[in-house]
Amino acid sequence: MPWDRNQMAARAAEELQDGMYVNLGIGIPTLVANYVGDKDITLQSENGMLGMGPFPFEGEEDPDLINAGKQTITELKRTAYFDSATSFGMIRGGKIAAAILGAMEVDEKGDLANWMIPGKLVKGMGGAMDLVAGVGRVIVVMDHTNKHGESKVLRECSLPLTGKGVVDRIISNLGVLDVVPGGLRIVELAEGVSEAELRAATEATIVD
């Protein structure tokens, strides 16, 4: 069985180590926070917060306390607030150890596309271009194929890029792949997924 959303998030949480400052994107990456356990991780929200806490209890929501996805959140003892220029200064400056992001497409050179589909869907890049250009390690969490069954792990991205050569690791519903010279290397298979299945769902070059 391929991993579900929560299993992918749990696998992504294994990438995190004590002491890391980490930025989580919207969607499955947000779920990663549920699986960090006892690890000492500080979450950054690029709208101006380090030390992001969990969702508030009902009735304790504060309109002045939201994450980058505009969701109500809470603060922790370690929390610090700052403006957007300072926030992206720490991102661009390489102070954030890792970003875990979703993707529409990723390719064997580590190129990432996740902000628009020309003529169809225009969302904007938000802070994603800054994050992939600035953080220490970029981990993409995504379904391996789209709803038509076509691979999203490509030889070359067809959509407008968010960043070029920026992805370090891909965690999909089928397994884990690293971007290495010459293509992608299989690190791990989801439980019950065969290497043949993963290769069949991957357009990108897989190297040993």
Binding site: F55, E58, Q71
Partner: peptide, 8 residues
């Protein structure tokens, strides 16, 4: 509040 998210 655009996205009201809470926990139990």
């Amino acid at each position: 509040i655009e996205q009201r998210t809470v926990r139990k």
